[in-house]
Amino acid sequence: MGFIAASWPRSRYLLEPDLLDCVNAYFRAGKNSPADRHNRVSLMNTAPADAAVCGALIGVADSLLFATNSEQRIMSLFEVSFGTHDSRMSWFRFFARHQGTCSQQLREILKPLVKATPATVDRFVPRGPGFAPHHIPAFLEQDWHDRFIRPASIPLDQRIVRRCAAIQLVCRAAHCDTHEAALLLGIPIDKIPAGIDDERFWIGARDAPTDFRIAMTELGLHVGEHRDRLPDYQRRRDFLRNWVLPPNDWREVTAQLPRTIGKQPILDDRKRQVASIFIWTRVTGGEHLFAPRPLEHDQPHHIRQAWAARRPTTWHQLAGRSDPGPHYATLRRLLGEYADDLAEEIDADALPANWHTRPR
Rank of each mutant, 00 (worst) to 15 (best):
H297R: 15
H316C: 13
V121C: 04
C171V: 08
V283L: 10
P231N: 00
F94S: 07
E296A: 14
R304Y: 04
E225V: 08
I303R: 15
P258W: 08
S87T: 13
I261W: 13
A182K: 07
A291I: 08
L245C: 02
T46H: 04
H297G: 14
P129R: 01
G186H: 05
A308D: 15
L64S: 01
S322G: 15
F212C: 07
A67L: 00
A174K: 00
F78S: 01
H135K: 06
R235L: 14
A308V: 11
W91H: 02
P118C: 07
P352G: 06
R88V: 11
P247H: 05
P326C: 08
Q317A: 12
A166W: 09
W91Q: 01
A52L: 13
V170W: 07
R200L: 10
D323C: 13
L318R: 02
R293V: 10
R241A: 13
P258G: 06
I277N: 09
V170E: 12
H38D: 12
P265M: 01
K31F: 15
I261N: 09
P17N: 03
E345S: 05
S33K: 03
F82S: 02
R333Y: 04
L106E: 10
G286C: 13
I74R: 01
S76M: 00
Q273T: 06
R37Q: 12
L289P: 00
H135T: 07
W250V: 02
T210F: 08
L289I: 12
T357C: 06
Q158D: 14
A319R: 02
A255H: 00
T46M: 09
W307F: 14
A173M: 06
L77Y: 01
D190Q: 11
E287V: 11
V60M: 03
E141Q: 09
R172K: 14
S87D: 02
R229D: 09
R93Q: 06
R123S: 15
C54S: 09
M44D: 03
E199T: 09
Q99I: 07
N24L: 05
I346T: 05
P34C: 11
R147S: 13
V60E: 04
A5C: 03
P359L: 05
I109T: 05
V223A: 01
E79Q: 14
V23K: 12
K115C: 09
H327W: 11
T254D: 01
S70V: 03
L221V: 09
R311Y: 13
R163K: 15
F212K: 03
I196L: 15
W250I: 03
Q273S: 11
L351M: 08
S63F: 01
S153I: 08
V274F: 01
H85E: 14
V223S: 01
G30R: 12
R311T: 15
